[in-house]
Structure formats: structure tokens, C-alpha cells
Design a protein around this nucleic acid. Structure first.
Lengths: 151, 151
DNA sequence: CTAATTTCTAAACCTAACTTTAGGTCAAGG
DNA sequence: CCTTGACCTAAAGTTAGGTTTAGAAATTAG
């Protein structure tokens, strides 16, 4: 298979460690846009290996696939991304990561206060959802209330 | 409703901000064990308010319900937990939290290295899954490989 | 006592991120 | 040419953590 013909999905899966089905799924989510060969099979650029690596890293940082699609939109689509392009969106990832770390650090401080008194009384301890976007979404109304002295 | 008769599920929901359906679900997952009144309705102790608060906090820390069930197993089941009992499992929670924070900090350091070179070559940058249990489970084989120089 | 609330169970539905299956097509090796 | 392995699509299944629905029974308010 000559380079100009691109990589098949199986080869791409082998290079990234992803399942073939996952790669097709990412395409369905708009994260990848392979072209098709004469027989209708997907063909990928080598740059897509890096793209998939990026997706895996971003997922570890807690980004959803739609989030990642947005970040990837920062790449040029008329040419193969350069290391500089990747570095640029790496910075954007760093922002997400910093936010998550801050959240957890704040949570830890509050927990330390709670451990001291053993109360777990949330309004008092201020241990309520400090915009942890990973947890906050999806599950209906969940304002955190705790004990109240009476009843 | 006299105190000795316990709290109904609706009252408990009101106190915690959780949906009635969520409380029933937690019971199905073994996180709560209410008794039943003569008519077959669930009745809860006041200590269950604190138990539910704990569950909500632990979820924000990224623990799964099975994880939380394990942590809660550290509470005495023959008597109402004291503040001291809660403080003890709060410490256990702190351990989980520390681990998650460490993971993210390590990830951030690695990312900084990657931003510098723009490579996203995972084996080289060591940006592979450092046992982030929240992400690691569930989704098939996902060892992270990156670019290889050739092909 | 009656009407309005709650609660009950079981089962279906929901989202995210995939995998699996079924049935068929394409490509490569001998 | 033929067989085997890779690939295709569409649809259904999976897990976590719940919510919604339906129909029936219990409880509460007036």
C-alpha cells in the first residue's frame, strides 16, 4: 500500500491501540474525516494518528467528545497540522486541566475542614458543587443540602 | 409523623435535594437499607440524611457507587454513626481525592513537556494513562500508543 | 368518609461512549 | 480463480447512574 493511498482503518487501529469500532464512532461524532477509496473503504492520513492520540489524551483530562471536537476545530483544515499547531491546542487543553485541578484542590480544602468536625453538613462546610463540570451535567436537579438541626 | 416512625422517602428527598427515584436507586445499589412500615413504605433514620450527603460528596470526588458502598462499609452497622465515625471515612475519602489530584498534576507536567515540543508522541512524552481509574475502566483495550517514526 | 397525595413495583427510557452482531462487499495471496 | 481476511452499514447491546411511566395501594388532609 503506497503512502499516497493513505492508511486503512485497521492499520490506524494498530498504530493507536484503538478499536476499529471506536475510530468509526469518532468519525460519526465528527472528530475525523477520512476519505474513501474506489471500493468505499475509509482511508486516513498519517496525521490522523496524532489526531487520535490527542483525542485519547483529552479524554483522560475529562473532556467529552463534543468538547474535543471543538478543541480540534482550532487546527487548520486546509493543510496538515504542524507541531506548532498542536502546541497551540495543547495550551487550550492545559486550560481545561488547570480548571479541574483547581476544583479538586478546593474540594480537598473543604473536606479537610469537614474531617475536623465530622459534620458533613454541606451548607455549613461549603462542600457543595464548585462547578465540577464533569459531575454537574446530566442528572437533573441536585442542589446539595445537608443536615438541618431539627426534624 | 412521630420521630420513632422514621422519615418517608419524600421527606428524605426534600432534606437532601435528591430525587425520590435516586434514593430508591441507591438502595438498589446497596448504599442504604431502610426498613418498611406496616403498609410497605420505606422508612429512614435521620442518620440517612448524612449518609446521602456523603454519597453526593463522594460522587463529586469521582467515586463510583460501588466505590462509595465500600467506603460506607467502614461505618458501624449496629449503631448510629457518630461524628467520629464520619471523620474516619472522611479520611478514606481524602485518600481517593489525593490520588486523583496527583494523577492530574502528573498529567499536567507531562502535557507541559508536550506543549513544548508539539509532538504528542505518547510513549516519548509518557503521557499515557497513569491509572486514572475514572477513565481507565469500562472501554476495552486502550493502551495508548502514539506516532511511530516510520510508515 | 372521601379526595388528593405519596408511595409502591416493574419495566422502559435516557445519555455517553463504545462494542457486538448480522449480512454483505472488497482486497490480497496462492 | 478462489479463498481468506479486512471492511462496510445498520441496528442492537452494554455500563453507569439515573428518570419516567403505568397502574395499584397506602397515607394524609379536609
Amino acid at each position: 500500500m503506497a503512502i499516497s493511498e493513505g492508511l486503512s482503518i485497521g492499520v490506524l487501529a494498530g498504530r493507536t491501540g484503538l478499536a476499529v469500532s471506536a475510530i468509526r464512532y469518532y468519525e460519526a461524532q465528527g472528530l475525523l474525516k477520512p476519505w474513501r477509496n474506489a471500493g468505499g473503504q475509509r482511508r486516513y492520513q498519517r496525521a490522523d494518528i496524532r489526531r487520535l492520540s490527542f483525542i485519547m489524551i483529552a479524554q483522560q483530562f475529562g473532556l467529552s467528545l463534543p468538547d474535543i471536537r471543538e478543541v480540534l476545530a482550532g487546527l487548520p483544515n486546509n493543510r496538515t497540522p504542524t507541531p506548532k499547531d498542536w502546541a497551540k491546542i495543547g495550551v487550550s487543553l492545559r486550560g481545561h486541566l488547570d480548571a479541574r485541578i483547581d476544583t479538586l484542590l478546593r474540594l480537598r480544602d473543604n473536606l479537610d475542614g469537614c474531617i475536623g468536625c465530622g459534620c458533613l453538613s454541606l451548607p455549613k462546610c461549603k462542600l457543595y458543587n464548585p462547578d465540577d463540570t464533569a459531575r454537574a451535567k446530566g442528572s437533573g436537579p441536585r442542589y446539595l443540602l445537608g443536615d438541618r438541626p431539627e426534624v
